[in-house]
Every structure is written in C-alpha cells, then in structure tokens.
Amino acid sequence: VFVDDHLLEKVLELNAKGEKRLIKTWSRRSTIVPEMVGHTIAVYNGKQHVPVYITENMVGHKLGEFAP
C-alpha cells in the first residue's frame, strides 16, 4: 500500500496529539489507511483543495477518487 511519507507523518502526528484539523495535500495517489479515519483531508483536484472527510468505508481507496 502506498502513502506519501509527508502525509502519513502529518496524520500520525495529529493522532498522537489527539487533534483533528484540516490537512492539505497534493498527493491524490496516496491510499487511504485506517490511521486517517476521522480526519478531514483537503485533496487538490488541479484547481482547488476539496475537503474530504475520511470514513471507514474509504480505507483501501485512493484520495484522488474522492476529489473529482
């Protein structure tokens, strides 16, 4: 499973602090992992960042699938 390192670091850091804030990313190719559930990730679609709230059903899919 591929997840960009910088994105995973941000998610794990927020989980350690117990925070839930918006994470901006250009990494549409990253796979959604269970650690991301409950976070809102702003995924770049080529024009703007689209906020995507991550749920359990999204695990295993790519971030780009949810930012048309």
Rank of each mutant, 00 (worst) to 15 (best):
E65L: 11
P51V: 10
K24H: 12
F2T: 07
H49Q: 05
V33G: 03
V37K: 11
I54Y: 00
L12S: 06
R28A: 05
I41W: 00
E19R: 07
R21K: 10
M36F: 09
L63I: 05
T40C: 14
E56I: 12
L8V: 04
P51A: 12
V33N: 04
K20N: 04
L8H: 03
P68Y: 08
A67Q: 04
I41E: 00
V11H: 01
V37R: 10
E9R: 12
R28G: 05
H39C: 03
L8N: 02
A42V: 05
E9G: 12
R21F: 08
L8W: 14
K10A: 13
H61M: 12
P51H: 05
D5H: 15
H49D: 05
K24N: 08
V33M: 09
K17A: 09
E13P: 00
H39A: 02
T55F: 10
N15P: 01
W26P: 10
T31M: 08
T25H: 02
A67M: 05
Y53Q: 14
P51S: 12
V59A: 06
K24Q: 08
Y53R: 11
K62G: 05
G60E: 06
F66G: 02
K20M: 07
G38H: 12
K17H: 07
V52I: 14
L22N: 05
P34H: 10
D5F: 15
E13C: 14
L8G: 01
E56Q: 10
S27R: 04
M58I: 11
H39W: 05
R28S: 05
V11K: 01
R21V: 12
V33Q: 04
E65Q: 12
H6R: 10
V3S: 02
G64Y: 12
K24P: 09
V33S: 05
T31Y: 14
H61D: 08
I41G: 00
I23M: 04
V43H: 00
V37M: 14
H49R: 03
Q48R: 11
N57R: 09
F66M: 07
S30I: 02
P51D: 09
W26T: 13
W26K: 15
E9M: 15
G46F: 07
L14T: 03
V52H: 03
V3H: 03
P68F: 10
T25L: 01
A42E: 07
N45G: 06
V43K: 00
V43L: 07
S27P: 02
Y44P: 07
K10L: 15
Q48F: 13
A16F: 07
R29S: 07
V11Y: 01
N57T: 11
L14D: 02
S27K: 04
